[in-house]
Amino acid sequence: MIELKGINKTYQTANGSIKALENVSVDIGPGKAWGFIGLSGAGKSTLLRCVNLLERPDSGTVLIDGEDLMALNSKTLLRRRQRIGMIFQHFNLLANCSVFENVAFPLSIAKLSKNRIRELVGESLDIVNLSDRAKDYPAKLSGGQKQRVAIARAIAMEPKILLCDEPTSALDPQTTSVILEYLKKVNQGLGITVVLVTHEMEAARKICDTVSVLEHGRLVETLSLSDPAVDPQSVLARHLFGYGAGI
């Protein structure tokens, strides 16, 4: 479903170049809930942004359902992005738009009809249990509610993939578990492939079936969490899994 092959990305900064991603390859099957964990600056978010090409790799291939996204012209790429939902650490809701208008945003970008938009927004808000807040503005919502609106917005276009960039990092532990429950629902209930980037092992553990560990832009190891005898080898992975003395 999502196939990344030999992704390299280097940033130029005032103090020279930084290798954000180095030869990262990963193959995420349909319906999976795949986590990328690592410390901040490990390149997780950059890698996630390579999936919908918000970040264009210097080299490598990004295949979605076998289609090479980097080979598409910009117009087609924009259409493909409509089918890849994304949520963010800081929710990124439009402050001057009501909850309804926020969820409708991707649909109006895709120029769907008014009736179809009303239908899809209604369904999405139902899924995150916020139908009663449709007319409110984001300023009136709590952090958890804002992220639920963002989830509704991301799934409104009925995508096959949901990219999650540190979706719980700005939330308290209780709200975090609520959001993770909704993400689980999206993954298992709607069958949407979820890619979760986080530095919180707990978050990944709750919803992911597979976790890839990133360190300094390199993929250190990939672990199946459904395996009860999961045995991380790298120092970083052992640390993130709560084994050993840490690093």
Binding site: L77, L78, R80, R81, Q82, F88, F91, L93, F105, I109
Partner: peptide
């Protein structure tokens, strides 16, 4: 962030 969001929905 909202500009990035807009890009992400195409």
């Amino acid at each position: 962030g909202v500009i990035e969001m807009a890009k992400s929905v195409g």
